[in-house]
Nucleic acid binder design. Structure first.
Length: 878
RNA sequence: GCCCGGGUGGCGGAACUGGUAUACGCGCACGACUUAAAAUCGUGUCCUGUAUGGGAUGCGGGUUCGAUUCCCGCCCCGGGCACCA
């Protein structure tokens, strides 16, 4: 090969590959399948980023290697096309988002093709095309019909500048994740998906996957499982007990029923429903009401701000009974107790819970509302060290002559000073017949004793699935007043029936599915796709509704059930919808009868290896796992988890180690790099830049090094000899093994460096056999597909290098000799080469006869001599 | 606050189950080729000392014949969760 001309080689082979459709896949049942998936890009106007390329290149390397190993590899690509940036651009410019999307995806496609990824372009999908979103809508209807979608009026996070309702997860530190603007609470009717019904399985089934451990941890954190118990506290009124015949109870959720004897008061969330029920018995209800309305006005950020002092107010006139010791305890409301978690009520144990302690201290400092609870009395509930009088810093009441010589750690000191409290498990004290019992056991026993119930609670909330926006999938539901009425009438006859039984009226003869019963008046529109109509203006209207609401002829329809006047839902789906199932569509992207046929899904799914950005490892991953499990439950997909393996690549920072951004002016455009240095050098650098799962910074000089390396590989074609140095074959074997393992273990950077070392070695030995050179080209080809294809052809091969097999490596022969390092007392003093046949004793002897070693040993006595096979001898003196 | 990562030359970073720390690449310096430059090739490049040597993997302890690796206590950086009972 003459001088390495990257652009010539690249355009030549890209054309050939495209013409030959070399990466088109079919369901070849003779071969085992392997499904490689990357997160499909959101085609923004900014174009492709070096961060995209990191993940795509890595999976491209994997795909190419797997093909060479005999797998039928599916490596598809498509577009996540609904989304806010496009919509915001449409609002600003008045250009139809369809047109913007077309332009952006065309640009992305061109860029991706120029990078030589081995995608099967025939399976391309676009979430904003009606052929695709027909099925997104269809799946939503299945959720609805199975009672997993429901409309609920609830306070949502409302972004003032985007004019959009945000999911909890889109609010970061109290501001809008997208625009950074302020967020306030607003009551809105929202479609919800009942993901919480799947919380347990989403949590437990992580064990079945091979996700990176940190990804599993993030998922678990988000789901937030905690095991505890629900315990009922009886509420007593001072005014009159006769008034209420049926007794009032408050259920609390606690993870620490073992500390129940130390519960000195109860706290309810201000939104707790029992408050209005007890209105007449609360003597200070005016004040209480004031507190409640103040809370309601607060933004989440204020309510949860760190270091904020706790507030609350006692409900005077009522008391609760601690079910363990039957003591009367006061009841408070406070905004540190959240309505949406557990039961919205807690038992407070100031001696063993930091928040309760902080609240109690706060209330005691306020003279107007003394808690008649004594922290000292309570602190002795637990003795974590049963055999010691000094109990982890907690001294039993009345115990004065403790041993002051016992070591007291920092935490103990703080506890003694009254600044900290004991929150760990231990052994119970001051707990009646449970004294002496360990926490673990007491949790069960005390729960049983008071008639409570062991329970698991999750932090995960249901998914707000509505957006008051234009650029999304229309929700195919219709509201019909007549159907609502007919259902309400028939409900009286058959309240628990899933389907409404026969009734007199024609309307009431209609069958209703579970979703329709759950959401009276809402009926499904089965005519899909429900296409997004064109509008004149793209921004939400003044009522905060999507612009769809203003198209009267679209909104007003005949009810598909009863033919009466009805209205369409004007909310659209969130961006997460289309991406929750796209990997299924790739298996069968042209099917217009089903979202994908079971046959094809059985062949291709689950996804064997899914790679994406760390930023999607909580939400997108969780949402798509949820959809998949649901589809599995209704028999439409063959597995209960969508992805076997999930990895995430680290971010690539700018040259200075700062995040790449337009404003910093440090954005690296892949196109520029490719133009200057070539695709192969770019790909190689993406893999070499640093440990794959960690963030690292870009260096354009580093790319230059990759060009040099490629040129050296080309140069080897001039160094082909008949009789190569023996060492070359051994080294190659070692390299084949290393590169293969490194790819599997996502250690692409060391895979590249080991190939560099091999090439350096061959230059050193000045020759390589043709056979071995070709093997090297093969293992290099996933990283640098263009130049290796060219060199492969130069070696006289007629078929593409992509069609050839991955080379086998022979286990390396034991080296004939090796270097032994000799240490004296752990310090290296000598090295020598020994023959492989030499035994331990002979090597030790040889080490001991070394002059240098003898000098260092001197007249010290030798205590022992340690030999590590094939590595070193350490002579230890006294 | 809790949970994950990470801290190694001027820089990106290597180091298998505890066994030669600094591989590979970048940069830099010097040399060769050249009228010259670029490219290329070669040599050198952790610190300290003339040197045999000594000291370095965020800091302080420990275990061990031997620790970047294991244990204990801290510090710093990145990410996730966060009044979740």
């Amino acid at each position: 090969m003459g001088k390495y001309n990257h652009s010539k080689i690249e355009s030549k082979w890209q054309k050939i590959w495209e013409k030959d459709e070399i990466n088109k896949t079919t369901e070849d049942k003779k071969k085992p399948k392997y499904y490689c998936l990357i997160e499909f890009p959101y085609a923004s106007g900014e174009g492709l980023h070096v961060g995209h390329a990191r993940g795509y290149t890595a999976m491209d390397v994997v795909a190419r290697k797997k093909r060479a190993e005999g797998f039928n590899v599916l490596y598809p690509i498509g577009w996540d096309a609904f989304g806010l940036p496009t919509e915001n651009y449409a609002i600003k410019t008045g250009v139809n988002p369809k047109i913007i999307t077309k332009k952006n995806t065309d640009n992305f496609r061109k860029q991706l093709k120029s990078l030589g990824f081995s995608f099967d372009w025939s399976r391309e999908i676009n979430t904003s095309s009606p052929e695709y979103y027909k099925w997104t809508q269809w799946i939503f209807l299945q959720f609805f019909k199975h009672g997993l979608a429901y409309k609920k009026k609830m306070p949502i996070n409302w972004c003032l500048s985007c004019k959009i309702g945000l999911a909890n997860e889109e609010v970061v530190n109290g501001v809008c994740e997208r625009c950074g603007g302020p967020v306030e609470k607003r009551e809105k009717e929202q479609w919800m998906l009942a993901i919480t019904k799947y919380a347990e399985r989403l949590y437990d089934d992580l064990d079945k996957t091979e996700f990176l451990e940190k990804i599993k941890i993030q998922q678990r954190n988000w789901i937030g499982k905690s095991e505890g118990a629900e315990i009922a506290f009886e509420i007593k009124s001072k005014i009159s007990n006769l008034k209420s015949e049926n007794k009032n109870e408050v259920n609390v959720f606690t993870t620490r029923p073992d500390t129940l004897f130390g519960a000195t008061y109860l706290v309810l969330a201000p939104e707790h429903e029992i408050i209005s029920k007890l209105k007449s018995q609360i003597s200070n209800f005016k004040e209480v009401e004031k507190y409640i309305s103040e809370t309601a006005k607060k933004k989440d950020i204020d309510r949860t701000a760190e270091g904020k002092q706790k507030t609350g107010i006692e409900l005077k006139g009522i008391k609760a009974i601690n079910p363990a010791n039957k003591k009367e305890i006061p009841v408070f409301i406070a905004d540190y107790v959240l309505a949406g978690y557990g039961t919205g009520a807690i038992m407070a144990v100031p001696a063993h819970d930091e928040r309760d302690f902080a609240f109690a201290s706060q209330m005691n400092a306020d003279k107007k509302s003394q808690i008649n609870a004594d922290k000292i009395e309570i602190i002795n509930v637990i003795n974590p060290y049963p055999n010691s009088p000094v109990v982890g810093g907690i001294f039993p009441t009345g115990f004065h002559n403790f041993d002051t010589t016992t070591a007291i750690d920092e935490k103990t000191k703080k506890i003694l000073a009254g600044n900290e409290i004991w929150t760990e498990f231990g052994v119970l004290r001051n707990s009646g017949k449970f004294d002496g019992m360990k926490s673990e056991e007491a949790i069960k026993e005390i729960t049983k004793f008071v008639g409570g119930e062991l329970k698991t609670t999750y932090k995960l909330r249901d998914w707000i699935f509505s957006r008051q926006r234009y650029w999304g999938e229309p929700i195919p539901l219709i509201f019909c007043e007549l159907c609502k009425k007919s259902m309400e009438n028939s409900k009286l006859q058959a309240p628990n029936s899933k389907e409404v039984p026969n009734s007199k009226s024609e309307i009431q003869n209609q069958k209703f599915n579970e979703g329709e019963i759950l959401n009276p008046g809402w009926v499904v529109d089965e005519k899909l796709p429900l296409e997004l109509p064109d509008v004149k203006k793209y921004e939400p209207n003044d009522n905060g509704e999507s612009p769809l609401a203003d198209i009267k002829e679209w909104v007003n329809v005949k009810c598909p059930k009863c033919g009466g006047p009805a209205k369409r839902e004007t909310d659209t789906m969130p961006n997460w919808a289309g991406s929750s199932w796209y990997y299924l569509r790739y298996a069968d992207n042209k099917n217009d009868k089903e979202f994908a046929s079971m046959d094809k899904l059985k062949y291709w799914t689950p996804v064997d290896w899914y790679n994406g950005g760390m930023e999607h490892t909580t939400l997108h991953l969780l949402y798509s796992r949820f959809w998949h499990k649901f589809l599995f439950d209704i028999g439409l997909v063959p597995t209960d988890e969508p992805y076997v393996r999930r990895t995430s690549h680290g971010m690539i920072l700018g040259e200075g180690g700062e995040k790449m951004s337009k404003s910093r002016g440090n954005v690296i455009n892949p196109e520029d790099v490719v133009k200057k240095f070539g695709v192969d050098a770019f790909r190689l650098y993406e893999m070499f830049v640093g440990p794959y799962d960690q963030e690292t910074s870009w260096s354009t000089n580093g790319v230059v090094g990759m060009v040099r390396f490629i040129e050296r590989v080309c140069g080897l074609s001039e160094k082909i000899v008949d009789n190569e140095n023996e060492g070359v074959n051994n080294y190659l074997n070692k390299t084949i093994k290393k590169v293969g393992e490194d790819i599997e273990n996502i250690k692409f950077n060391t895979a590249v460096s080991s190939m560099m070392m091999f090439v350096n070695f061959v230059y050193d030995k000045n020759g390589i056999s043709k056979e071995n050179y070709k093997k090297f080209l093969k293992i290099f080809s996933p990283f640098a597909p263009h130049v290796t294809e060219e060199l492969w052809a130069e070696m006289g091969e007629k078929e593409s290098i992509q069609k050839s097999e991955w080379p086998k490596y022979d286990e390396i022969k034991e080296n004939e000799n090796f270097i032994v390092v000799v240490q004296v007392d752990g310090k290296i003093r000598d090295k020598f080469t020994v023959d492989n046949g030499l035994g331990e004793d002979e090597i030790k002897e040889k080490a001991l006869s070394s002059e240098v070693v003898l000098k260092w040993v001197g007249d010290k006595k030798i205590k022992k001599t340690i030999y590590i096979k094939g590595k070193l001898v350490n002579i230890v003196t006294i």
